[in-house]
Amino acid sequence: MSDVRPHGIFVWNELNTRDIAAAKAFYGATLGWSFEPMPIEGRADYCIIRQGDTRVGGIFVLGGPEFDGVPEHWFSYIAVDDVDARAAAVDSAGGAVLRDSQGAVSGWITPAM
């Protein structure tokens, strides 16, 4: 069994919000999700979203001046075989790591299983 997720598939979704308590209350009540804090040194805790025993996403707190003007949003991550090589290909195709040539944003990661 491979320890790396297949290239080119969506592997993670993350809610970026300023009000994590409200987000947890909303999605807990409407989708039945539960939440697991994941401490991050020097930042607000990240939050793992669970559906039963399965990790289905995360919640990131948009805190601090670097996020001024950034709207709350869902952010998707796509598995890639080599982030550096794929980022170079994106650049030569007219996009950026987090913005494609048409303006759609996503994150690319090389996740371990």
Rank of each mutant, 00 (worst) to 15 (best):
W12G: 10
R43G: 01
W33Y: 10
V56F: 13
G94V: 06
N13G: 14
V80N: 10
G107P: 03
R86C: 07
F60A: 06
F10N: 13
R99L: 09
V56G: 08
G52S: 09
E72K: 02
V105N: 12
I59T: 00
Y27T: 14
A112V: 09
A22L: 05
T30M: 10
M38V: 12
F60M: 11
T110G: 01
G69N: 06
G64A: 03
R99N: 11
L62I: 04
A88S: 10
D19W: 02
A93M: 04
G103I: 10
P65D: 15
E66C: 00
M113T: 12
A104G: 04
I109Y: 09
T54D: 13
V90W: 05
A88Y: 01
A44V: 01
Y77S: 01
Y46V: 11
L31Y: 13
P6E: 15
W74I: 00
G95R: 00
F35G: 06
K24Q: 15
N13R: 05
G103T: 06
Y77A: 02
P71V: 12
V80S: 09
R50S: 05
H73M: 07
W74P: 00
A25E: 15
G63N: 14
T110H: 14
A29L: 07
E36K: 12
W108M: 14
E41W: 01
D100S: 01
M1L: 14
G58T: 03
M113E: 15
D84I: 10
I78N: 10
A79K: 08
D68L: 11
V4K: 15
D3P: 00
D68A: 15
V90P: 04
S92E: 06
L98F: 13
D19H: 06
A89Q: 10
G95P: 02
I9G: 08
A104H: 12
A23G: 02
P111C: 04
G94E: 06
I49W: 02
N13D: 12
T30V: 14
F10H: 12
G107V: 05
A85R: 01
A21M: 01
R43T: 00
G94T: 07
P65Q: 14
P39A: 07
V97Y: 07
V90N: 06
S106Q: 08
S101F: 03
P39G: 08
G94N: 09
T54G: 11
M113N: 13
I109F: 12
V61S: 10
D100I: 00
R86V: 13
W74M: 02
S34G: 12
W74S: 03
I59F: 03
Y46K: 09
S34C: 01
A79L: 01
S2M: 08
V56K: 08
D53M: 05
W33V: 00
W108K: 01
P37V: 13
P65S: 13
Q102H: 08
N16W: 14
G69D: 02
M113S: 09
V105L: 03
L31G: 02
